[in-house]
Amino acid sequence: MAESTSKMAENSPPQDYLEVIEKAATKVKTLLAANEKLTKPRVMIICGSGLGGIADVLHPDDKIEIAYSEIPGFKVSTVPGHAGKLIFGLIGFNKVPVMCMVGRLHFYEGYTFQETTLPVRLAKKLDVTTVVVTNAAGGVNPVFKPGDLMLIDDHINFPGLAGYHPLRGPNLAEFGPRFQPLSDAYDFDLRKLFYTKAKKDLGIVRNIHEGTYFFAAGPTFESRAEVRMIRSMGGDAVGMSTVPEVIVARHSGLKVLALSLITNAGVGEKPPSALTEDPKPLDDGMASHEEVLEAANEASKDVQKIIEATINEL
């Protein structure tokens, strides 16, 4: 979209932003009209880095793909591993209608929180009632290993505590209250359903934890001192997404299930000392986006199975 749209989303009166949301909803509804089964998705799935394959579990015969560039107000995803399209389809033998966001938008890409969370507002306009958010995250809890899954039961919105909050500015009263409580952000029943499906019904052997997700703006991976700080503050995993979407989803009255795939272990030990004769290599354990995508690819099949089984019950 043009630069004027970006400024409008951040600085203009709420009515202008509401009009952008309405235009996006009208466009998507028009494109979905060709398949009546898909016009009222029940669940929105936000696919994290390397997890876009979740869309592969949709029934192949009833599927509509819409590029972000076709939707008014939508920005283009610029991150490797994020395709940049909405896929509408049916999941499971119950054929639950869903809206998959394959390629999320991030604050670090230079977009405002209004722009990165616009898809969630759109989902509300399309009558979605539940949002399933996935992400790739760095493990801060020393018990967590790459390849483990973490059901998010709470979060620390570090940018939000400093004033960079997705609900900053005039309240969109038609979506939710001025002061949104977040003590119930991560739905207990959905977490229980996910775990039950994974362990009892599917027999998934991959480790599944619960924990607190620490939202950092990015795009740099954390320094050693920052990893120690996050750990001391109660964070179990750290990432650059999810929390703004969750906040807007709860503000919109949507239930939330959020899942982190632990793709790397945060390096929290002090740097090697230059005063020692044989220091440990400085790059030992250093994170990379390629590592994130590789770990996500290895775990994606399990994640797809569990999410399919979970959403089939909604």
Rank of each mutant, 00 (worst) to 15 (best):
P142Q: 04
G160F: 01
G110R: 08
D148H: 15
C100W: 06
Y111E: 10
H82C: 09
Y111V: 12
I152L: 11
M99Q: 11
T116K: 10
R121Y: 01
A137R: 08
C100L: 05
G110V: 12
C100F: 03
H106C: 09
N94F: 09
K85S: 02
M101D: 11
G92M: 07
N157M: 13
G92I: 10
T116A: 13
L149K: 06
A123F: 02
A136V: 08
K85N: 03
G110H: 10
D148V: 10
A123E: 01
G81N: 07
F113H: 14
L126N: 00
H106Y: 09
F113K: 08
T117V: 07
A83T: 11
L86P: 00
D154Y: 04
G147E: 15
Q114D: 09
V96A: 01
I87D: 02
I152G: 11
T134N: 05
A137G: 10
M99K: 05
D127N: 04
L105M: 13
K85H: 05
L90A: 06
H82Y: 09
G139P: 06
N94I: 07
L151S: 09
T117I: 08
V128D: 05
L122V: 04
L167Q: 06
K145E: 15
V98N: 08
V131T: 10
K85P: 00
G89Q: 02
E115S: 12
P142T: 02
V120K: 03
V131K: 04
P159W: 08
V131R: 07
G81E: 06
G138N: 13
Q114E: 12
Y108Q: 14
G138I: 14
V102M: 06
H106M: 07
V102S: 03
H165Q: 01
H82I: 09
V96T: 12
T134D: 03
L149P: 10
A123Q: 03
I91W: 06
K125G: 00
P146I: 14
H155D: 14
T117P: 06
R104D: 15
G89C: 03
